[in-house]
């Protein structure tokens, strides 16, 4: 059934376009169209600052940690708020909270590692190779992000992923939210109501 349908649909598409003048692809988006924010190269201070601003504007939280020692100290204090954790498989041992492990559906905290971030949209890039459930089911989501993985534009952040795509590449740009009830914003509707981006690594200077 499907193969016959395929043949007929593609045949009708071909017939529909037969006498139509083809339109050329306009190529890359002209640079002048991009926002005038001077996004720097990956990891540069201006990109990290723009990411922080936009992620916070969407309701996310950001912690800037300049070296691993301070990251572990911060984690210890942060984790004390929670009773259990579900950790994605890519999180290094020393960045895992010292909490009882629980299934993602029961855990108070989910922890994962971003494969990148885009300053332009304030988005974390998460891979399904880490597992979906710990990124989605706990009410609070902590995401570790290396400073050198913060890209300027969303295009730059996605370009590097094209050759090795996971089953799902996801962008998380703030806590779960909805305005479907009387146009009033509520958070934590389905996914995490709190998301914290913990950016780890030294200041890399500006991109200029």
């Amino acid at each position: 059934m499907s193969q016959e349908a395929r043949k007929r649909i593609l045949g009708r598409v071909r017939d529909a376009n037969r006498d139509r003048e083809t339109v050329a692809h306009p190529g890359p988006l002209p640079e002048a169209v991009e926002p005038p924010v001077p996004f720097g190269k990956a990891g540069r201070t201006d990109s990290v600052g723009a990411f922080e601003d936009r992620f916070r504007a969407a309701g996310g939280e950001v912690v800037r940690l300049f070296e691993e020692g301070s990251a572990q100290r911060w984690l210890k204090e942060f984790a004390s708020e929670f009773e259990s954790v579900a950790v994605c498989i890519g999180v290094p041992d020393d960045l895992q909270p010292d909490l009882p492990a629980a299934p993602s559906s029961d855990a108070a905290l989910g922890v994962s590692v971003a494969v990148g971030a885009a300053a332009q949209t304030g988005s974390l890039l998460l891979s399904s190779r880490e597992g979906h459930q710990s990124q989605l089911l706990p009410p609070v989501h902590l995401v570790w992000l290396r400073v050198q993985d913060v890209y300027g534009t969303l295009g730059d952040a996605l370009e590097g992923r094209r050759e090795n795509l996971p089953a799902t590449l996801a962008l998380h740009s703030g806590p779960s939210k909805s305005a479907d009830i009387g146009q009033m914003i509520v958070t934590g509707v389905h996914g995490p109501g709190r998301i914290i981006a913990a950016i780890v690594g030294p200041d890399m200077g500006t991109g200029v």
Partner: peptide, 14 residues
């Protein structure tokens, strides 16, 4: 919004 809060880009079964 600059982009929706969540974007899923799906290539295949997990």
């Amino acid at each position: 919004q600059p982009v929706g809060t969540f974007v899923s880009i799906i290539q295949g079964p997990g």
